[in-house]
Design a protein around this nucleic acid. Sequence first.
DNA 1: TTGAAAGCGATACCAG
DNA 2: CTGGTATCGCTTTCAA
Lengths: 352, 352
Amino acid sequence: MPDRLSIFEVAKQANCSIATVSNVLNNKGRVSAQKRKDIMKIVTAVGYRVNSAGRNLRMKRTEIFGLLFYPSCAEIFGNPFYAEVMGGLERRLTQAGYHLLLAGYEAATSTSPIPDFLRTGKVDGIILLGRFPTEIIRSFSRLKTPLLLLDSNAEWPLDSVVSDGFSGGVQLVRHLAEKGHKRAVMLAYAWEDYNIDLRIQGFRTGLREFGLDEGAHSVIRTSLSHSDLYRDLKARLDGENPPTAIVAVNDTLAVALMSMLQADGYDIPGDISVVGYDDEKIAQTSTPPLTTMRVNRPELGRAGAELILERTSVPKSPVAKIRLPVELVERESVAAPRVLAAAWPDSRPVEE
Amino acid sequence: MPDRLSIFEVAKQANCSIATVSNVLNNKGRVSAQKRKDIMKIVTAVGYRVNSAGRNLRMKRTEIFGLLFYPSCAEIFGNPFYAEVMGGLERRLTQAGYHLLLAGYEAATSTSPIPDFLRTGKVDGIILLGRFPTEIIRSFSRLKTPLLLLDSNAEWPLDSVVSDGFSGGVQLVRHLAEKGHKRAVMLAYAWEDYNIDLRIQGFRTGLREFGLDEGAHSVIRTSLSHSDLYRDLKARLDGENPPTAIVAVNDTLAVALMSMLQADGYDIPGDISVVGYDDEKIAQTSTPPLTTMRVNRPELGRAGAELILERTSVPKSPVAKIRLPVELVERESVAAPRVLAAAWPDSRPVEE
DNA sequence: TTGAAAGCGATACCAG
DNA sequence: CTGGTATCGCTTTCAA
């Protein structure tokens, strides 16, 4: 931050007081049109930009939000999902004159559970991107600082934006039902996650709503490992009344399951249909291309920006919890179930 | 940034002046041990943290660096390479009490080619991560602000850290030569890139140094598309004196080439050896696992942090350009060339 | 419509 | 060793 010219310099050249310059710069109305024009000309001529340090001190506002990842930046970069979320977030914030201070939770909080940059007043609020441990959210929830949970633990009474996993789960089942499926199984990682829970609830609700089998074993959530999950899936497929469709909790899992199924001789979607979730890149290039749910990721960021900006300007407004709609993307991993095709050769799915 | 207690409060409780409190907080020596202890006790008791705004104004220093991506954050997040670089960068900066302000170039620079957050003094320096258009680097190079090019255009007389692509190119050829290869071809995207140029120069130097064929066509850099590059490679393989080894400019390309080769009936490494570059994740899971060059990515970030911190404290120190060593990772995509094995059945590579 | 001056919270000089 | 005070650059109140 080298020495730059100050508001005094502008005032001197414009033959007026710094108060007037400030008023012009901040669009306070009470300056004559002529004076405003003169001052603006000088401002552009000398390339004056307001000094943030002075402004921050006076306004008690930095126009910076802290963006916190858990545990570290490295964990979350490299995730294309967040990349796009951040795109939307950054665009809207920049437009509002705000910036993002970046930190992994662990790096930011060497001493207290509250990040240093918050305690020293370097930021006006904090955005938690992605899932955080409950303990940490609890600490933050006690703060009076503007706080946003973005694609995070939305079960807290805090401003939050998440995608509507519930609706996504329901939509996927509806799609399968429309194709004629009667038995579907959902696979998810055995991993505490609010949005995953929503997807599963949506799936279950869908089963009920569209008249699919709701057996006790319609959700497999037994492990963190693809191969374990596949083992349990295989047991279902080899048992009585095997499912004709698989709902994977995300595309990565879906693709992994597909290749293990194919290695075991299954044809997809001929023998069994598979759907994913998130519309990751891999969903387009997998064999076959994967039917999945798309989340409007930039919109997730944009909505989040809106929320924390609002919270900053009106601290006492009621908590806002946004669930963003999701959209089915039909590709080639779903077909009518074979058993159905055999049993009712002239039913709708086969006519096509 | 809510109201927090100020240094006056601490001074009052400690029965001393704010000057003394400041001295204690900043470890200026001239305070008695007793007073220092008293003051520290109160500081911790009331949880006082210095207010950045006041400090910034007085010190003309924000302890924030701007981290700039081109063109946008979204382009660069989702790249695991940078994720790890940022890990190292963040760790070192945090340790030094610095933070990172995040921005995509386009978002940050709506009006002038110099980002707004720099012009308003929100940052003490700027880190350019990844390649930028020449024009933009030129604008930055005129600034007197600390500037760091991180894994970027190192041809400028500016502080920079890059991995040693030249050495990497040489090392790969040495490895191939040791395996008995006599003819190798390198494939790269037809795309201006400083580090790629280095890799190619290293490759060429290696050919010379280790006595491999240096035909005019030892580098194929004809296109941006994998399939175009493969077409040109195929022409070489089908021509006279085909290469027995392929050096791809990165692992993604290497893996793409491998699968196209395999689709055309080549056995890797039986018929032809392939090496990649960067040790991306895919290099471990490809078939066969890929021999490649590894860059110590966190170290790239850490070294960059060191450089810009140094530049900040000693603005006039000479320009520092760091080339980080790279390391060969041997996997299973390289074998002795078949022709050699046939011609000299008892030569070293075959004895093994 | 304009300007003088207070004050945001900290650091650092200089006098005691 | 300690403290009074000027100062950083800006916004805002209040008086003219």
